[in-house]
């Protein structure tokens, strides 16, 4: 018998990617898609790539029925106000928004400039990045989403942090190049095509909210001074992060390889991309569109000890819906890669 899945906030790009993954997932059936603005409409009215697929129509929030797994894909701040109601409807919840990513209410207030509406729920959620929290996600009832830029930043530096090759004595300044779908479905002046096409636009060089979840995830290894500098580029999907660090004297390429292998071998969606030949020697987001992969790599200059730590993901895949489905697989006891094996396309 299939697991019954519902999605609250079904019209956004994250929800569209969730539906694309779930409609082919052999263990689940999407039984309800909630939208306050599109009740009665077909799913393909908002997600045209799903035309012809068997999905229910959108229904209004007051029609929410019981299900086994409920994905919350609403704008930031919505889920926390209704979390008890949702928990009464579903055994398991995965919230793609930022509402339950931070464990500490004071940290939440400092990051989002408002008090959390349900602080008692923060401790119940597991941060939804399986590569770092797999053990906690197995069988869990509640998982948060992940910030797409936070995911790429974490995965870029995690291997060397874990290996002790970089510590919190130096800042982690992550330069992120991001695509337009990060801004969500609602158009703005800055996302208007004539204003955005062809840009390389720095838009959040300091104070990005995702810094807090990166610091939280790295906390077992120290209190890292994490800074994200985000630039919009000519992509629809994709995040490419580079973190520039200094490595201890005497470090060799082999040492970096050993650290990356120790961190990522056996992780089904992590790939080390550090080639000495060919044209795709480093992680590139374009190759990852529609996938749940995270490609990581580096460039290292042994003469100076300087290194650039790299990660590329699809912000809607590994940075949102892909990780959420991976979490569901772990929470429900499914094989971890179920429904997530699409390998991308090229060119």
């Amino acid at each position: 018998m299939s697991v019954r899945v519902g999605i609250v906030g079904g019209t956004g790009y994250g929800a569209g990617e969730l539906l694309r993954l779930l409609v082919d997932h052999p263990e689940v059936e999407v039984t309800q898609i909630i939208s306050s603005s599109q009740a009665g409409a077909f799913a393909h009215a908002m997600h045209p790539h799903l035309r012809g697929r068997t999905l229910p129509r959108f229904i209004s929030p007051d029609a929410l029925a019981d299900c086994d797994v409920l994905f919350l894909a609403q704008p930031h701040g919505e889920a926390q106000g209704h979390i008890a109601e949702y928990a009464a409807r579903a055994e398991r919840i995965i919230d793609l928004s930022a509402d339950f990513r931070l464990r500490d209410a004071a940290q939440y207030t400092a990051t989002y400039s408002e008090a959390h509406a349900a602080p008692e729920w923060l401790e119940r959620f597991v941060y939804g990045l399986p590569e770092l929290y797999r053990a906690q996600l197995l069988g869990a009832r509640y998982a948060s989403g992940v910030g797409c830029n936070a995911t790429a930043t974490l995965l870029a530096c995690y291997a060397l942090v874990k290996a002790g090759m970089i510590n919190d004595a130096q800042p982690l300044i992550a330069d992120a190049k991001v695509g337009s779908s990060e801004a969500g479905r609602t158009p703005t002046d800055s996302s208007h095509h004539p204003a955005r096409a062809g840009i390389v636009r720095p838009f959040a060089l300091t104070g990005h909210r995702h810094e807090a979840e990166v610091r939280q995830a790295l906390a077992p290894y120290g209190w890292f001074d994490v800074r994200l500098a985000v630039t919009s580029v000519e992509l629809v999907r994709g995040v490419a992060v580079a973190i520039y660090v200094s490595l201890p004297a005497g470090m060799a390429e082999k040492d970096i390889w050993a650290a990356y292998r120790a961190a990522w071998n056996g992780q089904p969606f992590m790939r080390i991309v550090h080639d000495k030949s060919g044209i795709h020697r480093h992680p590139e987001p374009r190759l990852l569109a529609g996938t749940n992969y995270a490609d990581v790599g580096w460039e290292y200059d042994p003469a100076t000890g300087r290194a650039a730590l790299l990660c590329a993901i699809d912000n809607l895949g590994k940075g949102a819906a892909g990780s959420a489905v991976q979490c569901m697989n772990l929470m429900c006891g499914f094989e971890e890669t179920t429904g997530l094996r699409f390998g991308g396309f090229y060119p």
């Binding site: 390889w257 550090h274 020697r281």
Partner: peptide
């Protein structure tokens, strides 16, 4: 001989 991991020759 190409290395299967890093691609170096």
């Amino acid at each position: 001989l190409p290395c299967p991991d890093c691609g170096v020759e």
